[in-house]
Design a binder for these strands. Structure first.
Length: 716
DNA sequence: TGCTTCCGCCAC
DNA sequence: AAACGTGGCGGAAGCA
């Protein structure tokens, strides 16, 4: 074959009339006279090409060079029949076809190379034969294939099951759109159900939470989960995302097992899996998931054992998966009437405020920091009221400084507060209500680098009290919640073994008052609730845990920077073990590149070894904070696991967790003894060198919690 | 139109 | 030069 690039495409010369036309035609003529190589050089030399286009163009060129694709003959000549230049647009038009061809090639290769131990099951006899294998198994891998990732609206279209010892990976399609034979959906569910529900048969999955939710919708209660490769990977490397990766099975398998793996999109584009009509393709793709999940599990188990974290995984992360699922299923009843009511109220107030603000500031978008910044600092020159060098921001901190100098600022702050409440919470929540009338946020036990939970859709961990009032317990139930009192300072005390702090907690004294009295050498009476020394101590201890600098501390306490420095110095002199502990954390992080928290869980901080002082300094702050925050998160997780047991015994349900707070739905006729049992779990599950303390509340509406005394008095 | 990034702000 | 840790989310603005 003659390489296309070597062909001279055109020798024709244009003969146009008008001068402009002549110039244009001359350019076209020059282009049309190019070889393909020259055309490519011209197209790719454009330095304004978007990165995405460049990537596509590179792929198209490579395929063209290899003779895999070529120009569409219809594109190669003009209407007049003259040869036409090869353009960027034409090259990009070739891309979808190339992608399709690549997909077809990849799929064909995958199908051709399907291992013998991948079984496509489409008959009852086939299913019998496969299920017979399971009699000898202690563990299986499972993975449901679905139409999408929405646990409320998508549905199962097939099951992947791997028999571990037999090393057989089966795909059982049930709802593919195909002419090919497949087993009846409900029949398959019924046949698999006993295995899914057998707690003695171990289960392995990647992101099991999703599959378990999907199975639950079909009336199947999964039991015996022994391994989740997504959760385990987060214990092995909590920095995957920060390092540009993700926790998808394919990515992990490619990265850690070096098994090349196409992503779903690579192979099937945006097609739902049920639309894959060729079941041999479905088998090759789906059964491989079971296969590689098992391989990844074996890899992870060995590594976790090596770094002594296998028991942490088994005792904390794995059992808490079930709690996560229970909380997500529970959800909250959302009071939509109240949401509408509050929303209207806020909207009305905001209308009024913005009308007044228009008088103050003229026509400016109040939601635009850029426009406000221009107005305040360029037109009104309000920056003259700020300290020199102050960052010209329009955030609350800055606006408060400007408030005395412009009558509109105070109102703007009010606008900010109310529009945040309306936009992020009150208006947003009703749209998240599912068919059952509840909002079901997702909780991710592996959503943060420290091991805390993350939550989204909605984020149940950042609801202001104002919005919490919209969240109601299901009928017949109440929200029973416990809040670890000073959870993180207690961990600070536990780790530092600082005598004064230990003593304060052990004797039940108020930590901040006691410490303030000691540090400032003041009588305890002057350090009571609401006193300035107590407030300083509280902020100061928090500052120590978060690693804040003197500048920020000075701002927070409204003192000079020197006073802030003196405070910190005094703090460290009075509590030398705190200082020593922080130093040792930093030394450890610098030496090993990670720190250890409760149960040996690691926070890897490779940047602790950085030569960039700023980067390293940040890692130093993270080191101490991660130990405290992460250990507290483990205490919360362990407590959740125990609370779930209590819930099962009492017929209650796990509902939510907000870092140091855990809530359950209890029957509304709960007794004071029930509450004591509940509290005891918080106090006794993870014991420290100091006693735990918990504030327990009961309510029908979140955010309207009452103390136990109040609650039972009300009833009496 | 959909995407990404930035700013700002809610929670613990 | 940078100095508060962990998150999620909404609106504006820039870009393809």
């Amino acid at each position: 074959m003659v390489p296309i690039a070597k062909l001279r495409l055109n020798i024709d010369k244009p003969t146009s009339a008008a001068p402009n036309e002549r110039v244009k035609s001359a350019v076209q003529a020059r282009k049309a006279a190019e070889t393909i190589d020259e055309a490519w050089a011209r197209i790719l030399s454009n330095d304004k090409l978007a990165a995405a286009d460049r990537r596509k163009l590179d792929e198209v060129k490579a395929a063209m060079d290899a003779g895999v694709i070529g120009r569409d003959p219809r594109d190669a000549v003009t209407k007049a029949g003259r040869p036409k230049a090869f353009s960027k647009a034409e090259a990009l038009r070739l891309y979808p076809g190339l992608l399709e061809k690549k997909r077809a090639d990849m799929l064909a290769k995958m199908v051709a190379e399907t291992p013998d131990n991948y079984w496509l099951i489409t008959t009852k006899a086939g299913l019998d034969e496969f299920l017979a294998l399971l009699a000898a198994e202690d563990e299986i891998v499972f993975d449901v294939e679905t139409t999408g990732v929405d646990i409320f609206n998508d549905y199962i279209v097939g099951h992947v099951i791997s028999a571990v010892k037999a090393d057989v990976h089966a795909y059982i399609p049930t709802k593919h759109v195909t002419e090919a034979a497949q087993l009846d959906h409900d029949y398959v569910t019924e046949r698999l159900k006993p295995y899914y529900e057998d707690g003695q048969l171990g289960k392995i999955a990647h992101n099991a939470k999703f599959d378990i939710h999907m199975l639950a919708r079909e009336g199947v209660t999964l039991r015996g989960l022994t391994w989740d490769t997504q959760v385990a990977m987060h214990v092995l490397n909590e920095n995957e995302r920060a390092q540009g990766g993700n926790y998808q099975l394919k990515s992990l398998v490619t990265k850690y097992l070096k098994i090349p793996s196409y992503t779903y999109g690579d192979l099937f584009g945006s097609k739902g899996f049920h639309e894959v009509g060729d079941l041999t393709q479905a088998l090759a793709y789906a059964a491989k998931d079971g296969d590689v999940t098992l391989k990844l599990r074996n890899f992870q188990k060995a590594h976790l054992e090596k770094i002594d974290l296998l028991s942490y995984y088994n005792e904390v992360e794995n059992p808490v998966i079930d709690v996560t699922i229970e909380m997500e299923s529970a959800g909250f009843v959302l009071d939509r009437e109240k949401a509408a009511e509050l929303g209207d109220e806020l909207r009305q107030e905001l209308d009024e405020i913005s009308a007044n603000l228009t008088e103050e500031f003229g026509d400016v978008n109040l939601n635009s920091p850029a426009q406000l910044s221009k107005l305040f600092f360029e037109e009104l020159k309000l920056d003259r009221h700020l300290p020199k060098g102050y960052k010209l921001s329009t955030d609350v901190k800055t606006l408060k400084l400007l408030a005395p100098h412009h009558s509109g600022i105070k109102l703007l702050l009010e606008y900010r507060e109310k529009s945040k409440l309306l936009g992020t919470y009150i208006d947003a929540l009703p749209s998240l209500v599912q068919a059952d009338g509840r909002v079901h946020g997702t909780f991710q036990q592996d959503g943060t680098v420290t091991g805390r939970y993350a939550s989204k859709s909605p984020n149940l961990q950042n609801q202001p009290v104002y919005a919490r009032k919209l969240f109601v317990a299901p009928p017949g139930q109440v929200i029973l919640s416990g809040d670890f009192s000073q959870q993180e300072p207690r961990f600070l005390t536990h780790f530092t073994q600082e005598p004064v702090l230990l003593d304060a907690y052990r004797s039940g004294k108020d930590l901040y008052s006691t410490a303030a009295s000691e540090l400032f050498k003041l009588p305890i009476e002057e350090c009571g609730d609401g006193s300035k020394p107590r407030k300083m101590m509280k902020t100061g201890i928090l500052a120590v845990m978060y690693g804040v600098g003197p500048k920020t501390l000075a701002e927070q306490l409204d003192i000079s920077e020197k006073e802030a420095r003196d405070f910190v110095e005094n703090f460290y002199e009075t509590y030398p073990r705190v200082k020593a502990w922080i130093d040792s954390n930093e030394q450890f992080a610098k030496k090993y590149g990670y720190v250890k928290m409760l149960y040996g869980r690691k926070r890897r901080l490779p940047e602790a070894k950085s030569r960039d002082r700023f980067v390293q300094f940040r890692a130093m702050r993270q080191a101490t904070n991660a130990i405290i925050q992460g250990s507290a998160a483990i205490q919360t997780k362990k407590t959740m696991i125990e609370l779930q047991r209590l819930c099962r015994a009492k017929g209650w349900q796990m509902a939510f967790s907000v870092h140091d707070e855990i809530g359950v739905y209890a029957n509304e006729d709960l007794t004071i003894e029930d509450v004591r049992d509940f509290e005891a779990v918080f106090l006794n599950t993870v014991k420290l060198s100091v006693p735990n303390k918990t504030d327990v509340e009961v309510s029908r509406r979140w955010g309207e919690g009452r103390s136990i005394e109040e609650w039972f008095n009300l009833l009496a």
